[in-house]
């Protein structure tokens, strides 16, 4: 059977697509710099004694090296020490910060998924519960996270707990909505079939609704993975967590005038962290759904 192979191919396609996306962003970035950025020169190219001078045709403040550094400057900054007379490179520092943030996001993601799946199961089985509580679930998402984060910190204190709660808050909503659709997705005739077997609600839930909902659940989890990372980064500021990417962004933001490369490098690492989390969920999806006929690409 070729199910395993086609699942692997699906994941590979996703990764390839993301790689192409990053490449396109990079090319556009440098094209922008080429047209609007600061002039630059290369002396003695590869020891040939030749040199090259580039004078962009237009001049735009937003494209200057102090706003939008060259990609090679960003990569170069990653290899430099974080601070003078420190041994750790910026890359090393950011990777450990990313790992910390990911851990926070993962806890929030897990709790948020659990809450979302539970709420969906309750709402699908009780019209009363849906009518009574669904409006609050929706209203909760109307509060901007930047306003909510400080309130949560006031309530739960500075530290990991608050950050996890914020990641949870951003995760549970897409999961609830998508999972409700998933639990309602079975063919009415499948439910009729279960009725003809005099199956209990519990049996219908575990044998039909839950398995049928998995493709919907994974769709939500892919959205939630990125959202949980964003939530954790945002929460680290007011939460006073020092070890994650959020604090790195705040720090390097303050050093922006002298060196924008560090901030951009942090943003790059944060994006890659989100993408890696997404890819992990995508792989879990491919493995879980590999035997189904209608596996998503």
């Amino acid at each position: 059977m070729t199910d395993g192979r086609s699942a692997a191919r699906g994941v590979l396609r996703t990764v390839l697509l993301l790689g192409v996306f990053l490449l396109v962003v990079g090319v556009l970035w440098e094209a922008f710099k080429w047209l609007f950025g600061d002039p630059w020169r290369l002396d003695d190219i590869l020891g040939t004694g030749l040199s090259y001078y580039h004078q962009p045709p237009f001049d735009l403040l937003q494209a200057s090296d102090l706003q939008l550094p060259h990609l090679w400057s960003i990569v170069g900054a990653l290899m430099e020490p974080v601070q003078r007379n420190q041994e750790q490179t910026l890359l090393g520092y950011l990777v450990s910060a990313a790992a910390y943030t990911w851990a926070e996001a993962l806890i929030g993601f897990a709790i948020g998924t659990l809450i979302g799946v539970t709420l969906a199961a309750i709402f699908v089985h009780s019209l009363f519960a849906e009518r009574a509580f669904m409006p609050y679930v929706i209203a909760s998402q109307a509060i901007p996270i930047v306003a909510l984060a400080p309130i949560i910190v006031v309530g739960f204190g500075r530290g990991l707990t608050s950050v996890v709660i914020i990641a949870t808050y951003l995760t549970f909503f897409p999961v609830t909505i998508s999972q409700m659709r998933g639990l309602r997705s079975p063919d009415p005739r499948a439910l009729e079939l279960m009725r003809s077997y005099a199956a209990s609600r519990w049996q219908v839930f575990w044998k039909v609704r839950m398995p049928a909902s998995l493709p919907y659940l994974f769709t939500a989890l892919k959205v939630a993975a990125a959202a949980a990372i964003v939530g954790a980064i945002i929460g680290e500021g007011p939460g006073g967590v020092k070890d994650g990417l959020g604090r790195a962004i705040v720090n390097f933001n303050q050093q922006y005038i002298t060196g924008p490369e560090k901030l951009w490098a942090t943003i790059l690492v944060a994006s890659i962290t989100g993408i890696l989390f997404y890819v992990c969920v995508r792989i879990a999806e491919a493995i879980t759904l590999r035997r189904r006929g209608s596996t998503s690409a």
């Binding site: 005739r189 499948a190 009729e192 077997y197 005099a198 049928a212 998995l214 035997r291 189904r292």
Partner: peptide, 16 residues
Amino acid sequence: DRDYGMVFQAPVLFDW
């Protein structure tokens, strides 16, 4: 009492 077996026009099988 589970006295019924049912078959519809569509097979209604579970693909998982």
